[in-house]
Design a protein around this nucleic acid. Structure first.
Length: 108
DNA sequence: GTACTGACCAGAT
DNA sequence: CATCTGGCCAGTA
């Protein structure tokens, strides 16, 4: 492609989509990938999130996996932070640590 | 180049 | 519900 063309990066498009998720709602990796125009790119979304700098304003905590769970090691700081941030927004977890996508999944 | 890994997923069993 | 399978894409060794 010719230089001088400022097209948004894949990462930027992913940030853009995540930024649209309303407070108190969640979206799955696959859903974010889909809305960002990718296809079968759920893994890329996860990778982009793993590279986010600390203190980012992107509401990364609103992105969970297709099973309604948090895709971070259960005993990691990130896991605890994501869960508490979601609960603070009103998103409820069941005993298995899963969210009801039926109730909290964002529908654009 | 191959092989393995990972904040993934849908479908089949 | 648990497991497995094949697919996906990038980075790393």
């Amino acid at each position: 492609m010719s230089p001088g063309h400022d097209e948004p990066t894949v990462a930027e498009q992913i940030w853009q989509v995540i930024a649209m998720i309303p407070k108190g709602r969640v979206a799955t990796y696959g859903q974010v990938a889909e809305l960002a125009g990718l296809h079968g790119g759920a893994r890329r979304v996860g990778r982009v999130l793993s590279q986010l700098p600390n203190g980012t304003r992107i509401p990364w905590h609103r992105v969970i996996n297709a099973s309604g769970g948090i895709s971070l090691p259960p005993r990691s700081d990130g896991y605890a932070r994501q869960k508490s941030r979601l609960e603070k927004e009103g998103v409820q977890f069941n005993a298995a640590g899963r969210v009801s996508l039926r109730r909290f999944r964002w529908s654009p």
